[in-house]
């Protein structure tokens, strides 16, 4: 594999929790805690996980809406900061948000919303407007009908098409889709997914596709990253991960999906309780408090991502690390290898 288009290393963001009389710090939310992954040009990386796992913070870090505490982001081999300005990063990495209505300024027409970015970037007014209309047509909205409309006059699906058009106005290399289809009705969601597939093929885009819907992620992604409490639990090719999840948390997530078969309904919940809070994550492997396979080593040592036998498949679980001290470590490692 050639050098990855996007390379994230040790990315960390902690939010101080303010409280008390004078805004003293009362704790730290470890929203993203040392995540490392690559994205190759032209592929789609799916990110899944539950609330508090840090997937939305990761998205915002990638487009520099939030500045990371530590770690690096490299785009095409150039590190953001030293080699590549934030301004250039923002042109090459764009984002589409979940809430299609909140993402659009209610006072701007659709063409104004789309042309705003290019105009800020120095494009002349009439060219930016022409570009906006071209993009509207490209996302399947007739410019003659929609360019002069306001957000409240459009349906959710149409607004999300506009948001996609706005993201494309910079001709970005990467588009981060943060739950971009989650708020849409199923029948409309399918239309937008088709559009995303078309745009990717036409423009050679790379997607980072964040969603809580595992069916959609499976359909859209080439590789999938599972996050838990600010860390990467598992990352690997989509089919390998879905058919043989290596991390117990990935397995639980997949098992929690409704079965779609009335004769084989889910009989037992794979996990008990709610996902814990990222304010004071447990030590060691963060999943050990809910894990059925947890052993003593799990509460003491963070396993870190371990390379699985299959190419490009990594999981952070002691079970797969020979000699980790987990009671099942050797045998299971032997089986998978």
């Amino acid at each position: 594999m050639s050098a990855p288009l996007l390379s994230v290393s040790g990315l960390t963001k902690h939010f101080p929790l303010k409280g008390g009389l004078f805004g003293r710090s009362t704790g730290t939310v470890r929203a993203v805690d040392g995540i490392t992954f690559d994205v190759a040009e032209g592929e789609t990386l799916g990110i899944v996980g539950e609330s508090g796992c840090g997937k939305s913070t990761t998205a915002r870090l990638l487009v520099d809406l939030i500045t990371p505490d530590s770690g690096s982001i490299r785009l095409g081999g150039k590190e953001i900061g030293p080699d590549l300005s934030v301004r250039d990063l923002r042109r090459q990495v764009q984002m589409v948000f979940q809430d299609s209505y909140a993402s659009l300024n209610p006072r701007l027409t659709m063409e104004d919303a789309i042309s705003f970015g290019p105009m800020v970037g120095g494009m002349v007014g009439h060219k930016a407007v022409a570009l906006a209309r071209d993009l509207l047509a490209r996302v399947g909205l007739d410019p003659a009908r929609f360019a002069g409309r306001y957000p409240h006059e459009l349906s959710g699906g149409q607004r999300q098409r506009v948001n996609i058009a706005r993201a494309l106005a910079f001709s970005p290399k990467i588009v981060v889709l943060d739950e971009a289809v989650s708020a849409l009705d199923k029948s409309v969601e399918a239309q937008v997914l088709n559009l995303l597939a078309d745009l990717k093929a036409e423009l050679g885009l790379t997607y980072i596709f964040i969603s809580h819907d595992l069916n959609v992620v499976r359909y859209m992604s080439d590789r999938v990253m599972v996050m838990y409490l600010g860390q990467v639990a598992e990352i690997g090719p989509v089919e390998a991960l879905y058919s043989a999840p290596a991390h117990p948390y990935s397995r639980a997530l997949l098992a929690a999906m409704p079965s779609m078969d009335p004769d084989r309904r889910t009989m037992e919940a794979p996990l008990a309780g709610d996902p814990p809070n990222p304010i004071n994550p447990p030590p060691g492997c963060r999943f050990h408090t809910r894990c059925r396979l947890a052993d003593t080593v799990c509460s003491g040592t963070d396993p870190g991502l371990y390379v699985m036998p299959e190419a490009g498949h990594l999981a952070a679980c002691h079970i797969h690390i020979p000699g980790s001290g987990h009671r099942d470590a050797k045998s299971r490692a032997g089986v998978t290898a």
């Binding site: 809580h212 999906m257 919940a269 996990l271 709610d274």
Partner: peptide, 11 residues
């Protein structure tokens, strides 16, 4: 609800 919690409530 999150997926792992949703299935608990459904059951």
């Amino acid at each position: 609800l999150d997926a792992t919690v949703q299935i608990q409530i459904l059951l």
